[in-house]
Amino acid sequence: MSSFAIVVRVFDGEAPYLQSFIDHHRRLGVDAFYPVVAPGGAPLCREIFARNGIAFHESDGQRISFVQNLIREDYVAVIDADEYLHPGLFSFLDEEKVESLLMPWRLTASMDDGFFETQQKRFFVFPQVKSIVKTSALQRLRLHASATSGSGRCLGIEQGQQFPVQHYYLRGLDDLLLKEGGVVKRTLAQSSGRKQVNLNADETSMDFPSRHARVAFLLNVLRFIPEQADPYSMSLDRSMLDHLRDNVEGDPEAAKRELHDSVSKIQNVYRNRTIRREIRATQQLLASDPRKVSYQKRVLKLLRKDFQSRRSWLGHFFR
């Protein structure tokens, strides 16, 4: 049997969800975790890793290349703590002896704080990829598609759709609160998802973090997709969540209301016909076995187009 490793970057905003992530992947058969944390950062996550007998690694900028030479397992994947590998993945790799496999995102999200632990969710598959690769052929670890130098079978999204990476893109407003750099004192993810987007035109102006646009788009897509059972068992560590909320600068409920209003405002920019068209276009993309599609670039391109359309006189007829 092959052995499997996961490289994961973490910050303290993940602490309420981290034990669930560890438990899921241990059930799958992950042999080793290689967490990468910022120097002096993520003290709560360090506590969780210590309880689970997992060593963490400090790296400036949380560069995952720092742990590449430490990996001794047969296969390695780089994923985030809100991403979950498919239960059938490891047996497939063991049987097929592939060098690498690209896996698309299977996205889900909600602004409901009780959502993470619910059994029914909506899912949207998008061809932003993660990869799992044979360590013996590994050339360079990357956040999405790691590079290999071997001559083995490299399988794309066509095969990877059987084993999508389940991405809990937004686990509720508490999750968004913790991901916003500077909101929680001990969260060191100030840069992730914080690229500012400006939609400015005459009397109309919008300015928000890029993460808000990505969330707003996904929430609109999920409205058109039926609910189904979540095959994974999720759990939230409420003691960790309470600990983090105690360190919020200001009123956490007021901050959550502001976040909700920001995302909702962006949701109202997207036209329903754009969302329906994008769902169909994504299905066609997946059928064509693309190498990779940038979720953020696509979302922002559609947002800017719809913003301009809604400002135009003709836009009123095509909402």
Rank of each mutant, 00 (worst) to 15 (best):
I279N: 12
R280P: 01
D237S: 12
P252R: 08
H260R: 14
R273Q: 06
R273L: 04
V263E: 00
H243G: 00
L241N: 13
S264D: 14
S239E: 08
I266Q: 01
G250K: 02
R245L: 12
H243Y: 15
I279V: 14
T282R: 04
D242R: 08
E258R: 07
S239H: 03
R277Q: 11
R291T: 10
S264M: 14
K265E: 11
R291D: 03
H260E: 13
D261W: 04
S288L: 08
S264Q: 07
L241M: 14
A254L: 09
Y270E: 00
R273M: 06
R245V: 12
R245Y: 03
R280I: 10
Y270A: 09
A287M: 11
S288V: 03
H260M: 05
N272R: 12
K265G: 06
N272H: 15
V248C: 12
R273W: 02
H243W: 08
Q284K: 15
L241E: 07
R238V: 08
I279D: 08
G250M: 00
R291I: 02
S264A: 12
L236P: 06
R280F: 13
K292Y: 06
H243L: 10
T274N: 07
S264V: 04
A287W: 04
E278P: 00
S235K: 15
D289S: 06
L285Y: 02
L236Q: 02
P252G: 06
G250V: 02
Q284N: 15
L241R: 08
A281R: 08
R245G: 01
S264I: 02
T274H: 13
V248F: 01
V293L: 15
M240W: 01
D261Q: 12
L236K: 14
L285D: 14
L244E: 06
L286E: 00
S235G: 05
E278R: 13
D237H: 12
P290G: 11
Y270R: 04
N272F: 06
